[in-house]
């Protein structure tokens, strides 16, 4: 990695469609303001298209020799606001480290910025948001140097971003409007940046080839173990788990030429699978209800504190 990279301005800033929609979803489903961290990576833009057609009359010249692109690929939202900084916007490194450790982030994910969503407020960075952005970019540098976990030289500082969101709806909630604006931290100021969306389609093929999605999925206790053990199990056992009660012989019959005779068998297989899915859905429903009731409980406690009943 080049050491002069930090001096280079961002040539292009993009966000993957699913990431943006999931950020918008997090915001629109929350009652009030939200904040979180942005993950992504810094890459060299693919060089301009090379034409093997020698008759091509024009020659392309890149504006800078090593244009860099920043892609936002994932995010996490915190459960409350003002969770890792003080009223002056100074980062509480200990809390931040604890949050990051608790979040079980993939080792290759890089924090490239943070986000804040607030309703009924202008889409300009506030006093504290700038302070947090600056302080966060500094403390991440320190964390990085302290941990020495990255292979990159410490002279490499990725650009730092701030994503500001706002949302509003008509009084009858028929139309919801979502707005977002990305900012790049430059010399203690936040400069607005245009941000392109990466979507599926022929126009995005190039980006898609160089695109690797990473999303920090909040791992729930217990499930994590299941997933790990799943990988360790032999193929046969895995198949057995999925197709419970169906031996290999029984399955082979279904795949053969005489499969048509075994429609009842197939239906039985699906019924079992559906049953499994159903019980899974049920447990998801129960745990969601628990989470929701806990959230309501928290909301009540906060309201009580604020003197609202």
């Amino acid at each position: 990695m080049d050491t002069d990279l930090p001096n280079q301005p961002i040539e292009k800033l993009s966000i993957s469609g699913p990431t943006l929609s999931s950020i918008l979803q997090s915001f629109s489903s929350s009652h009030g303001d939200i904040e979180g961290l942005l993950f992504g990576h810094v890459i060299h833009l693919p060089p301009p298209d090379l034409h093997d057609d020698m008759d091509c009359s024009y020659t392309t010249s890149a504006p800078s020799p090593n244009p860099i692109a920043v892609i936002i690929t994932g995010h996490i939202c915190f459960s409350s606001i003002s969770s890792f900084y003080d009223p002056l916007g100074r980062i509480d490194s200990a809390t931040l480290t604890r949050i990051l450790e608790g979040a079980n982030l993939p080792s290759n994910s890089t924090i490239i910025g943070w986000l804040f969503g607030r309703r009924s407020a202008p889409l300009r960075p506030s006093m504290r948001e700038l302070s947090v952005t600056l302080s966060l970019s500094r403390s991440l540098k320190t964390l990085e140097t302290n941990n020495q976990r990255s292979h990159q030289s410490s002279a490499f500082h990725p650009p730092f971003l701030f994503l500001l969101l706002s949302s509003s709806s008509t009084p009858n909630h028929a139309i919801h409007t979502h707005e977002y604006r990305a900012f790049e931290l430059k010399k203690k100021t936040l400069v607005p940046r245009s941000m392109s969306l990466i979507n599926v389609g022929p126009a995005f093929r190039e980006q898609y080839a160089s695109f690797a999605a990473e999303s920090a999925f909040p791992l729930i206790e217990g499930v994590e173990g299941d997933v790990k053990s799943l990988i360790g199990i032999k193929k046969n056992q895995m198949l057995d788990r999925i197709a419970e009660g169906f031996g290999l012989d029984r399955l082979r019959k279904m795949a053969g030429s005489g499969a048509s005779q075994y429609t009842t068998e197939l239906e039985a297989l699906y019924t079992t699978m559906l049953g499994n899915l159903k019980s899974l859905a049920r447990s998801v429903e129960i745990s969601s209800a628990n989470v929701a009731s806990q959230e309501i409980q928290n909301l009540k406690l906060r309201s009580k504190f604020a003197g609202l009943d």
């Binding site: 009652h31 009030g32 303001d33 409350s80 606001i81 003002s82 009223p87 002056l88 916007g89 607030r118 407020a121 202008p122 300009r124 960075p125 506030s126 006093m127 504290r128 948001e129 700038l130 302070s131 600056l134 203690k188 100021t189 909301l299 906060r302 504190f305 604020a306 609202l308």
Partner: peptide
């Protein structure tokens, strides 16, 4: 603009200044 947060009453209010004062950064 003064931004409080009714759901998190402990959190201090934040301020958004007018666009002409974009380089007014009292905390920096």
């Amino acid at each position: 603009d003064v931004i409080y947060n009714a759901q998190y009453p402990l959190v201090a209010p934040d301020f958004i200044f007018s666009p002409e004062d974009e380089d007014f950064h009292p905390l920096l």
